[in-house]
C-alpha cells in the first residue's frame, strides 16, 4: 500500500529538482541581465545626471548624444577598430593556421606561443603595449639608443594615430586565438582532398583559397561573431592602453559610455549610448541566430 505514495514522492522530486537547480541562475540572469537592460533603457528616456531619476525626458538624451562630437569620434573609432581588428585578426590567424598546418616540427610549441597572448587579460596586454609604444620607454627610445635618432614612433601620443595602437595590441592578443580556431577547422579537412587537388595541378594557395577555406565557412562565421562582439564591447584594452586619449581621440563607444555615466555625471547620455551599442550588437547577433536556428529546425 506504500507503493503509490513513494511513486508520487519520487515523481515530485523528479519534476521539481531540475527547476529548483536552474532557478537561481535563471532569476539572476533575469534580474541582472534583462532587468538592467530594461532599467537602462528607461533611464535613457529620463533626465538622469549624477544619480538616476525618473523624470520623463522623451528623446532629449538621444538628441544630446547625437549632437555630441565626442560620440561621433567614438563611433568613427569603432568602425576603424572593428574593420582593422576583425580583418587583421582573421587574415593573420588564417595565414598562421595554414603555415602551421604544413606538418612542421615543434608545432605544439609554436601553437602555444601564438595562443599565449589569449591567456592574458586585455588589461595586461594594454599595459604592456603602453610601455612598448611609449616614446620615452619603448621602441622609439630603443632605436634612439641604437643611434637611429631620426626614428619616431609616437602613435600612442598622436591623437591622429592613437586608435591604431589599440588595433595593434588587439591583433597581438587575438590573432593566435583565430589561428587556433582555424587550425582546428583545417585538421577536420580530409587530407586526401588536398592530395587530389595537388594531382589536379592546383598550387598550394589555390588549394586553400578555392577548396579548403570555402569548406571552413562555419568556422569563418563563428570567428566573425566572436571577434565582432570583442570589438564592440572593447573597453579594458582602451582603458589600459590609451585611457581614451590623447584627449578623447581614441574613445570607443564603451569608454564613452563609461565616462558619461560614471565620471561626468551624464547618466542619461551614457544610458542612451549603451542602448545604441545594444542595438549594434543585436543587429549582428539576431540575423545570425535566426539563420542558425532556422537551419537546425530544417536539419
Amino acid at each position: 500500500m506504500t507503493m503509490p505514495v513513494r511513486t508520487a514522492q519520487y515523481g515530485f522530486a523528479e519534476r521539481w529538482l531540475p527547476r529548483l537547480v536552474l532557478a537561481p541562475s535563471f532569476v539572476l540572469t533575469l534580474v541582472f541581465l534583462y532587468g538592467f537592460i530594461v532599467w537602462n533603457g528607461y533611464l535613457s528616456f529620463t533626465t538622469s545626471r549624477m544619480l538616476p531619476n525618473y523624470e520623463w525626458a522623451g528623446l532629449a538624451q538621444y538628441i544630446t548624444l547625437f549632437d555630441n562630437e565626442r560620440w561621433w569620434v567614438a563611433v568613427r573609432n569603432l568602425v576603424i577598430f572593428a574593420v582593422l581588428f576583425i580583418g587583421g585578426a582573421m587574415g593573420i590567424g588564417v595565414v598562421l593556421a595554414i603555415l602551421l598546418d604544413q606538418k612542421i616540427r615543434f608545432e605544439g610549441a609554436i601553437r602555444t606561443i601564438y595562443l599565449y597572448p589569449m591567456a592574458l587579460s586585455f588589461i595586461v596586454t594594454g599595459t604592456a603595449w603602453k610601455w612598448i609604444l611609449n616614446p620615452g620607454l619603448g621602441i622609439e627610445k630603443l632605436m634612439h639608443d641604437w643611434g637611429f635618432t631620426q626614428f619616431t614612433f609616437d602613435w600612442l601620443v598622436n591623437s591622429e594615430m592613437s586608435i591604431y595602437t589599440v588595433v595593434l595590441a588587439g591583433l597581438w592578443q587575438s590573432s593566435g586565438f583565430v589561428m587556433a580556431l582555424f587550425l582546428a577547422g583545417l585538421r577536420g579537412v580530409d587530407d586526401s582532398i588536398i592530395k587530389a587537388a595537388q594531382i589536379d595541378g592546383a598550387s598550394l594557395p589555390r588549394i586553400y583559397w578555392k577548396i579548403v577555406l570555402p569548406a571552413l565557412r562555419p568556422v569563418v562565421f563563428s570567428t566573425l561573431m566572436v571577434l565582432s562582439h570583442i570589438a564592440i564591447k572593447s573597453f579594458d584594452l582602451i582603458m589600459a592602453l590609451t585611457g581614451g586619449g590623447p584627449g578623447y581621440s581614441s574613445d570607443l563607444p564603451a569608454t564613452f559610455m563609461y565616462s558619461m555615466a560614471f565620471t561626468r555625471g551624464q547618466m542619461g547620455v551614457g544610458a542612451a549610448s549603451a542602448m545604441m551599442m545594444l542595438m549594434a550588437v543585436a543587429a549582428i547577433v539576431v540575423p545570425y541566430l535566426y539563420s542558425e536556428l532556422r537551419k537546425d529546425g530544417n536539419g
Partner: peptide, 21 residues
C-alpha cells in the same frame, strides 16, 4: 617530378571530392 606533372589521376578511398563545389 611533381604529382601534377606526372600525367596521372587518382581515386581515393574517401572519394576526396571538393565539398563546396
Amino acid at each position: 617530378v611533381a604529382p601534377k606533372d606526372r600525367d596521372i589521376a587518382m581515386v581515393f578511398q574517401s572519394y576526396a571530392l571538393y565539398p563546396t563545389m
